[in-house]
């Protein structure tokens, strides 16, 4: 399998007055196309920082990061925006849907910034909502949807630009166990269709559903192993 993410010696420093926080302290790893990877670790270990950097929302202080053949460090602000639009689908713990827009319009949003024609993007948004099981709720606003439904809309939105990489930072953190499991089942399906997924989680079951688990501590990777097949099955049966 070809490499989708190639990170070499990533360092992220935050200077807080006299003190310097090493949010990332020399992280190197690779993620292959089609992989499904969980990142775990205690709070403050640098998981979100790493996701933000992979997603092109933040830039590393040091190190080299190549995603989908493109060197993130060398990109201008506008190029980074385009990269996020084309290559990354973000899924957040708090869904982050725009409250004034309907489900359909929320899913259309990334395609607006991708310059997709109105007709084409409406059709694609409708198909994606159908795909995540919300075909009946396209005209609803976020406040009229349950948490699980909102996260499905967010997943449909993340898929809108056909990105090769989905980044989910604690996607089930705001959901109950059953709804969370439904979301994880959806991830599993998407992964089988070829979408590469990186998910940050505190939940062991969620982590076990992935193919591979990276464990972080104090801005470093302390373990990186493949999950057992059986464990993956238990998670969503």
């Amino acid at each position: 399998m070809a490499l989708l993410v190639d990170a070499r010696g990533l360092v992220k420093l935050y200077r807080m007055g006299e003190e310097t926080v090493h949010a990332l302290d020399g992280v190197s790893f690779t993620i292959a196309r089609g992989d499904y990877c969980a990142i775990v670790g205690p709070s403050g270990s640098g998981k979100s920082t790493m996701m933000n950097i992979i997603g092109g929302l933040d830039t590393p202080t040091e190190g080299k990061l190549v995603i989908d053949g493109a060197d993130i460090g060398a990109m201008s602000d506008a190029e980074l925006a385009q990269f996020r639009n084309r290559a990354i689908g973000f899924i957040f713990q708090s869904f982050n849907l725009l409250p004034r827009l309907t489900a359909l319009e929320n899913v259309e949003l990334p395609m607006i910034y991708g310059g997709v024609e109105p007709k084409a993007r409406r059709e694609r948004a409708a198909a994606l909502l159908q795909r995540v099981g919300l075909g009946e709720r396209m005209g609803h606003r976020p406040t009229q949807l349950s948490g699980g439904q909102q996260q499905r809309v967010a997943i449909a939105r993340a898929l809108a630009g056909k990105p090769p990489l989905l980044l989910a930072d604690e996607p089930t953190g705001a959901l109950d166990t059953t709804t969370g499991a439904e979301i994880m089942a959806l991830f599993d399906e998407l992964n089988r269709e070829g979408v590469t997924i990186i998910v940050v989680t505190h939940d062991h079951e969620v982590a076990a559903a992935a193919r591979r688990t990276i464990e972080m501590r104090d801005g470093r990777i302390v373990s990186d192993r493949l999950n057992e097949r059986s464990a993956r099955h238990d998670a969503h049966v």
């Binding site: 997603g55 929302l57 602000d77 506008a78 925006a81 385009q82 996020r84 639009n85 084309r86 973000f90 982050n96 725009l98 949003l109 990334p110 910034y113 991708g114 939105r157 630009g161």
Partner: peptide, 16 residues
């Protein structure tokens, strides 16, 4: 602010 952050995450450029 949050909406602006989200739009940027989804691919809005500064100029947009």
């Amino acid at each position: 602010t949050r909406e602006i952050g989200l739009r940027k995450a989804l691919g809005a450029r500064q100029s947009d």
